[in-house]
Every structure is written in C-alpha cells, then in structure tokens.
C-alpha cells in the first residue's frame, strides 16, 4: 500500500500561472498595473484598487521567517515533528510554507531568519514552493 501523501493542490484558471511558475522553478506573484500593489494569493484583479489590469512576475524568492508552529501530531506525508511556517516575501505578501534543509526545532528556526524559495516535486504537474535557509541550503 502506498504511504499517504500530503494534499496535492489542483490549480484553477486564476492560479494556473502560480503553479506553472512553480514547475518552472519560479515563485510568481501578481502586480497591479495601475497602482503597483503586489499581492497573494492569486486573483485576476487588484485587492487594493480593484483594477483588472494586472501582471504576473517572478518574485525574488527571498523571504524572512514570520511565524511558525512545530506540529507533533501525525499528518499524512510528514515524518516526525515538522514546522508549518509563515514567511514574509521580500515583495510584501505573506504565505504559508514549510522550511526545509533545516532542523525542525525552536533553536534552529529563528524568527526573521533569511530564507530562499525552493521547490518540492509532489507530482509532475505540481511543484510546491517551500523555503530553506538563505545560502545555507544543502
């Protein structure tokens, strides 16, 4: 029997660019053409000014650790205690993620530490953005 795996996202038309980007190794965000606001999660209009002219761009992938918990309960697709994290992207938006290539302990996971995006290949279609310590990834 296959081991249970973590939830695999199914893209919608409004999020397709995000998952296409992840498969291409890019963290893609959206920026409003009218007011310049950068936002996440994806939607085909600007939450700041309601403008419908928006552009997709590749984010730097740089982020800092905003907050997290270390889950000690069993979860499909995860081994042992693991951190569920919130990271602040350099471009402004915040997102949920996991921190990889790093011990999953309060000592190793320091708030505000510098992170960089990397991708976890869940399926051929879906590569999941996760983050690792900047510069120090294995």
């Amino acid at each position: 029997m296959d081991r249970p795996t973590r939830m695999v996202p199914r893209p919608t038309p409004d999020t397709q660019h995000y998952w296409d980007g992840a498969r291409a190794g890019e963290l893609r965000l959206q920026r409003c053409d009218a007011c310049g606001h950068v936002y996440f999660p994806p939607r085909p209009f600007c939450p700041a000014c309601a403008g419908r002219e928006v552009s997709v761009f590749a984010a730097s992938g740089r982020a800092t650790l905003a907050s997290y918990v270390i889950n000690h309960r069993p979860a499909p697709g995860f081994d042992g205690p693991y951190a569920i994290a919130l990271v602040d992207l350099e471009e402004g938006p915040r997102m949920m993620t996991n921190i990889v290539d790093c011990e999953q302990t309060p000592e190793a996971l320091q708030l505000d530490m510098a992170l960089e995006v990397t991708f976890l290949e869940l399926t051929d279609e879906i590569h999941l953005p996760v983050f690792r310590p900047a510069g120090g990834g294995a």
Binding site: R6, S67, N71, Y82, I84, L128
Partner: peptide
Amino acid sequence: AGAGLNVQFELPYGPVGPPTLFTLPVLR
C-alpha cells in the same frame, strides 16, 4: 485533491486542523 484557496495554499504544508492553524501567528 481540491482547488479552494486553503487547499492550494495551506493544506499542502501539513496543517492538522485548528491546533496548527489558529496558533500560527503566536510566535510573532
């Protein structure tokens, strides 16, 4: 598999209900 915002942008990271979601802001 699902396509809601939480299914695409939260559940893949392994939250197990409220104890791992409601608590997330607290360290900050």
